[in-house]
Structure formats: C-alpha cells, structure tokens
Computed example of a mutant assay.
Amino acid sequence: MQFSVVRERIAAAASNVVMPAGAPELVCTGYVPDGVTAPCFFVAEFDVEYDKAFRRGMDSADFTARVLVGRADDKSAQQILDSLLSGSGTGSLKTAIEAARGAPGEAALGGAAADLHVRRVQGYRWYEHNGTQYVGAELIIHVIGSG
C-alpha cells in the first residue's frame, strides 16, 4: 500500500457525502491541515501492521480520520456532526467512504487497497485545532492491501 495514495482516496470518497440542508460543503483532505475551514474531514494518524500474509503478501492499517464542525451554534453543529456520523444514508461518512470499496472482486480505493471498512467512531468531543475550538469526532478506517 502507498499510504499517501490511500489517504488521498479516503478523503476523495468522504467528499461524496451529502451535507444537511443549509450546511456548508464538507472540506476533505488526506492530510492534517494547518488551518480548518469547517466543516472539515481529514485523515490524520495511522497505525500499520506489516506482514499479515506470508512473504509481504498483505499489510493492514488503521487510519484515524477526524471530522470537525464549527460551533457558531452548539446545537446545530452537533446535529450536523450527528448526521455525518450516521451509519447509513447519503449524509453518512461511513456510507460515502465504504462506497470506495468497489464492486465485488474489485480493488478498493481505485486500486490503492484490497479492501476497507469504517470500524468505529470515537472521541466525540470538543477539539482545538490551531487555536480554534470545534465539535468533532474520529473515524477509524481499517484498510488492507499488498505489502
């Protein structure tokens, strides 16, 4: 797996999410931005397990992505975040990202990985990024691919 390609393609998949009516478009990037234009989705840290199959046949990685929403109005910001964290539907990041798995038998992320799965949401809380507070959460995305 080429990690930079995987990061960029996860962000591209996330950009297909449909935002709630009246909410700004979701800004998506494969890397941690210096400054956030909310709402924002970005791929942050990742952990890798090498050699999951004999002779470098497969690696697996857990990518931590964050979604941050501005807090001009605390309730509406949390409602937008809740919508993005739904398990299904056009406004679901899980649905948008997992659509990049491809059809059965196809490689995921346009050939950058064998498969992926959004495992969980964690850390629903206030985040500070470059001195500004946002309500946000983390998505853990499990990706497997060639070693």
Rank of each mutant, 00 (worst) to 15 (best):
G111H: 01
L81T: 03
V48M: 12
K94S: 05
A38C: 07
Q122A: 15
S76P: 06
V27M: 09
S60P: 04
D34R: 12
E45W: 13
M58C: 08
R71M: 15
F42T: 01
C28I: 04
V118K: 02
A53R: 13
F46G: 09
A99Y: 00
D74W: 11
L93F: 04
V36S: 00
V32K: 13
V43L: 02
E106P: 03
P39D: 00
A112L: 01
T132G: 08
A99R: 00
R56K: 11
D82T: 12
L109Y: 03
R119A: 11
G105E: 00
T29S: 15
V36I: 07
Q79P: 11
V118I: 03
V118Y: 01
G123R: 13
R56A: 10
E106V: 04
Q122Y: 13
A100P: 01
S83M: 09
L85P: 03
E128S: 15
Q133V: 14
G70C: 04
T95A: 14
P39H: 02
E98G: 00
W126D: 15
A114L: 15
L93Q: 04
Y127C: 05
G102P: 01
K75S: 12
K75E: 11
G70W: 03
R120G: 11
D51F: 07
T37H: 06
S88D: 11
K75H: 11
V32N: 08
W126N: 14
A53C: 08
D74P: 13
